[in-house]
């Protein structure tokens, strides 16, 4: 079976995110008011072959924990869907 994982990696809430802060501070240059915070992370699409959903989930967990996210400074979340195409 083919699966697609859409993974979001975000900096921990309590840690300074300089990219997000810089972008947030410059929203006024767009004449946008009311923007109170911007946090910047990564969106990763990972396609894979797996026996079933549980096996696919396990692959995503290993990839996130070992490589895609550094859990000291980041969190990850993902959506998994079966691909029929």
């Amino acid at each position: 079976m083919k699966y697609l994982a859409e993974i979001d990696i975000m900096p921990h809430k309590e840690l300074l995110d300089p990219q997000g802060k810089t972008v947030s501070n410059n929203m006024k240059n767009l004449n946008l008011s009311g923007v109170t915070d911007v946090r910047i992370g990564k969106h990763i699409k990972m396609e894979m072959e797996a026996e079933n959903e549980a096996a696919a989930r396990e692959k995503v967990e290993i990839a996130c924990k070992k490589l895609l996210a550094n859990l000291i400074m980041e969190t990850y979340s993902y959506k998994l869907q079966e691909r029929t195409d």
């Binding site: 840690l15 300074l16 300089p18």
Partner: peptide, 16 residues
């Protein structure tokens, strides 16, 4: 640090 041979992590500089 990434390999876990030293504790902690090196993050993006605060001034970006």
């Amino acid at each position: 640090c990434e390999a876990g041979l030293l504790p902690g992590v090196l993050m993006r500089n605060d001034k970006q």
